Amino acid sequence: MIADRFPPCVKNVTDRTSNPFGLRPPFDRSDPGDRTAVFGYGDANADFHVVGDYPGVHGGESTGIPFTETESGRAIQDVVRAVDFASGPTERPTLDNCFLSYVHMCSLTDGQAPTAEDYATLERFFDAELRAINAHILLPVGERATDRVLREYTTQRRRFDLDMASLHARDIRGRGFLVVPIRDPLEWEDREREAIVSKLEAILDSDYRQTKGVATLVG
């Protein structure tokens, strides 16, 4: 099993920022000129892991970098930059203490959305990479990613109706993670950008690194 290669609580030694664990997509349905897949990207030893849906929504089919190209993707990258996780070019940023990836990494033709079967096919790849990064804070963006993260990495999915407006920038304890959902930027209202930036700043000011495994904050 892929995940068995990456024992938990062991930090990675790699200088690769794109697809650091060499995952291979199980299928290629991309349009001509697009990347077969938009692999995970960033600091493989990050404490913060931002999880998007798929390239057609959050971008990267041409650049190969998550959270580029689309309006929604650029808005998330703007948040990441606001807390000094990212610097450099927008289309290929330098990331520190932050990793970006998608629940469904493969590109699809003609703007198609992944089917339930497509998500299921890539489930083990996403899980292996997430556990290999072993971040303290999971930041799922949008309903699909939030549902996936809450179901698989917390015991609290049954408590929530996936009302992203109420879940946005909220602390949810997970099994070894703290989960902070992010409403998709295309749906942001009022001060929702400021809310997630403030939440991240508060976490960074806390002793979150001391709480890995119990997923609580001491601040």
Rank of each mutant, 00 (worst) to 15 (best):
A3Q: 03
V10C: 01
K11P: 05
K11Y: 05
N12R: 15
N12M: 15
R16D: 14
S18I: 15
N19H: 08
P20F: 13
F21K: 04
G22V: 11
R24K: 15
P25L: 08
P25D: 04
P25T: 05
P25C: 09
P25A: 10
P26H: 12
P26F: 11
P26W: 07
R29Q: 11
D31T: 03
P32F: 07
P32M: 09
G33H: 03
T36S: 09
T36H: 09
T36M: 07
A37F: 07
A37I: 02
A37H: 01
F39E: 15
G40E: 07
Y41S: 15
A44V: 15
A46N: 06
D47R: 14
F48I: 13
H49P: 08
V50Y: 01
V50L: 07
V50I: 11
V51M: 10
V51A: 13
G52I: 09
D53K: 08
Y54W: 08
G56L: 02
G59W: 04
G60C: 08
G60I: 10
T63G: 06
T63M: 03
G64M: 05
P66M: 13
E69N: 07
E69Q: 10
T70C: 11
E71N: 10
S72K: 02
R74T: 11
I76D: 07
D78K: 05
R81D: 00
V83A: 06
A86G: 14
P89E: 06
L95N: 09
L95Y: 09
L95V: 06
L95H: 08
N97I: 14
C98V: 13
C98G: 10
C98E: 10
F99S: 14
Y102G: 09
S107F: 04
S107N: 11
S107D: 07
T109C: 02
D110I: 04
G111A: 03
Q112A: 15
P114V: 06
P114H: 04
T115I: 13
E117V: 13
E117W: 13
E123D: 15
D127F: 05
A128D: 06
I133S: 11
N134I: 01
A135Q: 00
H136S: 01
H136V: 00
I137E: 02
L138A: 01
L138H: 04
L139I: 05
L139S: 04
A145P: 04
L150T: 01
L150G: 02
Y153W: 12
T155V: 07
Q156D: 13
Q156W: 12
R157D: 08
R158I: 00
R158N: 05
F160Q: 01
F160I: 00
D161K: 11
L162D: 13
L162H: 12
D163E: 15
D163Y: 12
H168L: 13
R170C: 14
D171C: 00
D171K: 00
I172L: 00
I172N: 00
R173I: 00
G176N: 06
G176V: 07
L178S: 00
V179P: 06
V180Y: 09
R183S: 06
E187W: 06
E187G: 03
E187Y: 08
R191H: 10
E192R: 12
R193D: 08
S198Y: 09
A202V: 05
A202I: 02
S206P: 03
S206Q: 02
D207A: 11
Y208M: 01
R209D: 03
Q210S: 04
Q210Y: 00
T211F: 04
G213V: 03
T216Q: 03
T216W: 00
